[in-house]
Design a protein around this nucleic acid. Structure first.
Lengths: 361, 361
DNA sequence: CCTCGTTAGTGTTACGTATAACTTACCCGT
DNA sequence: ACGGGTAAGTTATACGTAACACTAACGAGG
């Protein structure tokens, strides 16, 4: 039954390719089953109904198993002109918002027989942060977070050209972003509004916004929404303190906000949970308490938010839904379906332990 | 100059492949530059020195740019019989230990012109968690964390067969694991020893080990090392409390440990930072203080460890070095070099705020 | 008996690339 | 003038697969 895997590698003329790990090919399976390669392709491709007898099909299948046949994906991709693989470009792996985005995207992709390759934009990983060279996988389409567009247009000035003409779905980016086949958005403005309503209702009037100093739409929106909300809050006094996206930067920014001359803010609204955690540390290092002396709010509802004490009041984002919709949109674009109207996913404020009414004063 | 991208798709007989996004091919570039396809391949493959005149080379290059030529990776992979792509299988994205492993691996890979595809073993993502179907990228080799072997042998009973005959490097796994071309290890036993020495020197004698209830070598080692250390500590009394790998499970386990009948442990040694953070919460919920009443130690030094207060005393792991060595080993195996002797990377205890001498009593 | 339709396959081709082997033109020394 | 050498390309494959177009065998209907 198990013929030797002869595979007459006849070098008559010309080329001689680098001989990789020579696995059995569909032709080897064909020889073993006593049929032609075309039949093997039909059977294993599950297109044999009514074209190959069940007996033959079964013998092909068992021969394939016998030899441990695995189709050569490179050959298949070349033949089909498509890879059924999508690239997901995210800014950071550590951030579990993106981990959840991936989960949602992967779920939808798996249901459609599509693979997902992750490309975390490198933080000094290599000299050429080229997703299409680095993740050398041949790709059908790209989903990118707005926070990672740097990785895309690092290749060329034009963000769209960065995807090399592949369909592109943008997440959390300006609706109708140039070059994108679709966009998936969160109602971040509403999230910030919920935060401000909550703080306003508690009685806070001196509020400092600790902003993420990252040039990304997701943060611009938060800032605009904060500014809109603060003018809608009678007698409110706003402050602003920019910070990089880390716990430590949040700590520094909060320290600056709390030790600045003038009346101390009673609430710190942070653009991100990392910043909020840092802010809480700053409050305590100044001998104050959260939330009795200073309320702190975050954004994103990372795992970190419920790990710290007190647990963070923050805005929960439906991250996996973002990933799932993004993948759906990409699959639609790949199938040539017209883009669906961009809908904006709702977000939800989770009130936890870092907000309370301000002390009298 | 810019000829139309004619690409006479002559369907004389037979096949007719699915016409994907028809990008320009090297033959189109050849036509535009007035040379043969072979010359284009030579020039763009940077193998033209002494075989093509500089003038011609330049005209080929500019024609390629003009047309926006991007080589078809599927075709290249097929021709070369290799993809220069490695798969990194990790248990979770959220855990920044693995994010750092990836960073290290990606750094080494980039230096060698190799791409890295991440495969986070899915938590209920799809029905068939098949890295080789899901990450449909054609692969040259696999690096897998021992904590993710489940994703590998989910495909077949045999962990090695899971990689479909590809070279496999195991991280943090039993040295000389079956089927692995190489293994990269951390001296976790020494890490645990450092923890115990530290606690012993502080005067702790009633110590409970909060173990990760995960069937992985990395945790077996920790447990064995704990048990070895405890017998080497005169008068020491050990406890053990298993927990799943999460903050909340750590909290539950610590609560059980602290409220069990008999004298209360003065120190909780946790297998993981997540557990340690949960343990700290449990201590405080019982009205006790960290570290005055109960000392807590973690393991891994996640970002979380310095986000909480007090900052966690924990064992720092050279995660990126693990990734880098793993990738080096894989590249070596791919080049047919004999495996280097498995070396064990040192780890280092970071003493921070959650450990102190126990109160008298 | 011939034709038609169905069943069960096979032969052949091209996807786009990299490279071994061949070719042609030109120059130099003797 | 002529052989040999080099520079500058070109030609011809083959990688493994999927699918179209073809064919051989066979039974049924007229």
């Amino acid at each position: 039954m198990a013929l030797g895997r002869g595979s007459s590698r006849g070098t008559q003329k010309g080329h001689e390719p680098v001989t990789g790990t020579d696995r059995p090919t569909s032709r080897d399976v064909a020889r073993a089953a006593g049929v032609s390669q075309a039949t093997v392709s039909l059977v294993l491709g599950d297109k044999w109904r009514g074209r190959v007898s069940p007996r033959t099909a079964e013998s092909v299948r068992s021969a394939a198993v016998e030899l441990g046949y695995r189709p050569n994906l490179a050959a298949r991709n070349l033949r089909l002109g498509r890879t059924r693989t999508a690239l997901l470009v995210v800014p950071a792996l550590t951030n579990d918002y993106f981990a959840r985005v991936y989960t949602g995207a992967a779920r939808v992709a798996a249901r459609n027989g599509v693979g997902v390759v992750l490309y975390p934009s490198p933080e000094g990983v290599g000299p050429a942060p080229d997703p299409f060279g680095s993740a050398r996988a041949a790709l059908d389409g790209v989903i990118a977070s707005s926070m990672a567009v740097g990785a895309l247009d690092a290749i060329s000035g034009d963000p769209a050209a960065g995807t090399a003409g592949l369909p592109l779905v943008m997440l959390d980016s300006e609706p109708g972003a140039a070059g994108a086949a679709a966009t998936v958005n969160l109602d971040l403005a509403d999230g910030m509004r919920q935060v401000m309503d909550h703080l306003g209702a508690l009685g806070h009037r001196r509020i400092t916004h600790i902003t993420a100093a990252v040039d990304s739409w997701t943060f611009h929106v938060r800032r605009r929404a904060f500014e809109t909300a603060i003018v809608g809050l009678p007698g409110a006094v706003a402050g602003r303190e920019p910070a990089g996206l880390s716990v430590d930067e949040g700590l520094q920014a909060a320290r600056r906000a709390l030790t600045a001359p003038g009346p101390r803010p009673t609430a710190l609204v942070c653009d991100d949970d990392l910043l909020a955690v840092g802010a809480c540390k700053a409050v305590r290092r100044l001998g104050l308490r959260v939330p009795e002396d200073v309320s702190v709010t975050g954004f994103d509802d990372l795992a970190l938010a419920t790990a710290v004490e007190p647990e963070l009041t923050t805005v929960q984002l439906p991250a996996d839904e973002v990933g799932a919709r993004g993948m759906s949109a990409l699959l639609g674009a790949l199938d040539g379906r017209p883009p669906e109207p961009p809908d904006i996913l709702p977000v939800h404020l989770a009130v936890r332990g870092t907000t309370a009414a301000p002390a009298e004063g």
